[in-house]
Structures are given as structure tokens and as C-alpha cells.
Amino acid sequence: MNAHLNLGPVLFNWSADTFRDFYFRMADEAPLETVFLGEVVCSKREPFFAPELPAIAERLTAAGKKVVFSTLALVMTKRERDMVQQLCEMDGVIVEANDISAVSYLQGRPHTIGPFVNIYNEGSLAVMEKQGATHISLPGELPRSSLQALAKTAKADLEVQAFGRQPLAVSARCYHARSHGLAKDSCQYVCAKDPDGMDLDTLDGDAFLAVNGIQTMSYTCANLIGELDDLQTIGIHHFRLSPHSCDMVDVTKTFEAVLKGQMETGEAVEKLNDLMDGLPFSNGYYYGQEGAKAKGMVEEFGL
């Protein structure tokens, strides 16, 4: 099959043990091609799991997976900049840039571009390719028409997020801390209480968004399993699965089964729905609609 399943970086604050066990299991059991690894959301979390990274990378590599290290999305302090620079200047690793600062350190040698860098059109795509980008994970709000136009001219591999809550915004402010009445500097790492993000409802009690530290995400779980064929038709062959606390090996295997034609989409959607405990799915961005919408999910799969 000419389709590639990749695992995005863990966006949530998981304990070092959970983090390590998760990746060891993904290394051993999940049919993944590339695994993106590293802290993208909050620089304060990184020291906790950093000691585990070499063993994780080794286990993934030994299992035949390609490892890419992802950089922070919002780089403000000197410490954060140093963190990004050190990662970008390490020998023998491939790095995914999630901020232009990382692009500046990586240009001139092969690297990848993450979804937090704004590549909306052929012009910016061409600049990134010229500077050495070989793989580009596109921003989540791009509609099918844009993906198709980009795929027409791309030399780099293009990827879209096919599963997981959608990253929608980052801020200097930590909303997890703020919700607990704490300041960012003395946050007590309260984001660790919510392994899949903290639900945010409207005043009417409708589920709306999810808070993950300085990041705001969708309440819904993006799910393009029904669009995999169409995506490949328009030239997108890399699919990012964004980690959640559910059984991600099973999630990956479900995507693989659909890609190999071994499982019907309806059955797969039902399975993913069970795995995510009924969290609603969304695919609206793909159809140029509200990102929260789930086109076809209700009509076709009763979700």
C-alpha cells in the first residue's frame, strides 16, 4: 500500500512512566512508519520525560520505525529557544519544525515541517522544500481543494492529521492553570490531571473545546478514516494519528485495516467510536465547513 501511518507527538501531559510505556507498546505492536516524538505544547513538561527519550527512540528504531523529533510550537523565552536550537543541532536526528525559529536552525539540511507552521499554499511550500523540508504535516483547517492544489506541486511528502483532537490555538497564557486559579509560573502541572485535555462546555452545557495547557483543542476527535481513499486520490498519502489515552495500537490497526481494504469504513468508524468512548468525530475542515462538523458521520454511520 502506498499509504503511510504516522504517529504525531503526544500533545498532553502524561507521566514519564505512562509516556515510556505508551511508546514501547507502540514500537512493539503498532503498524506505524514514522513516530514523531517530543514536547510541542509546553516547555515546562519536557524535563519530566526527557530522560526516557533515548530508550524510546532506540526501541522505536529497533522495531523498524523512523523517529522524528518535534519542536515546540510557541517559542518565547531564551530557555525555550535554546531547547529548540539544541534539538535542531543534534547530529544524526531528523527534526520536525513547529515554529519558524526551528526552520531557521534546520534550513540547508533535510528536516520536516509540523502542522504549527503555516503552509497554506504552493508559494510557502516551495520555500520550505528549497530549504530542505522533505515531509510537511499541513495545518488542520485546510480544505480538500487546498490539499489537492498543494499535492499537485509538492516534492515533499504531505501529511494530514487523520485522527485525534484537533489543535486549534496556542497562547502565552495557560488556560489549564487559569481554570485552577493558578498562574502559569506556578501551575503545579495541573494539566497532568487530564490525559486527553480538559473539556470546555458552553453555558448551555454543550461540549465545545478542550484545554491542554497553553493549547486549545477541539472537543471532537478529527477522523478522516472515511476520506482515506479520496485523500490518496488527490495525492495525500501520509496520515497522522494524534495520540490519546485510548488504545492507540488498536486505532492504528483499524486505520491499517481500512487502508488495506480488510475492513469496511462503517465497521471502522464504529470501532474507533468504541475506542474513544463515544467522543464525537469531526471532519468538517476537509469539506470546507465548520471544523466541528461531521459530514456523513450521522447519515452513514449513525454517529
Partner: peptide, 21 residues
């Protein structure tokens, strides 16, 4: 803006219309 500008798709999540696009 309270979010980092140009890196926010909250509006399009709810309305389909975003600052960037």
C-alpha cells in the same frame, strides 16, 4: 487577540471562516 496570532483556528472550528484563510 489572546491566542498567538495567525495560529488560531477557533473561529473556523465554529464558523468555517478563519483569520488566516
Amino acid at each position: 487577540c489572546v491566542m498567538a496570532e495567525g495560529r488560531c483556528s477557533l473561529s473556523s472550528y465554529a464558523t468555517g471562516q478563519s483569520p488566516n484563510i
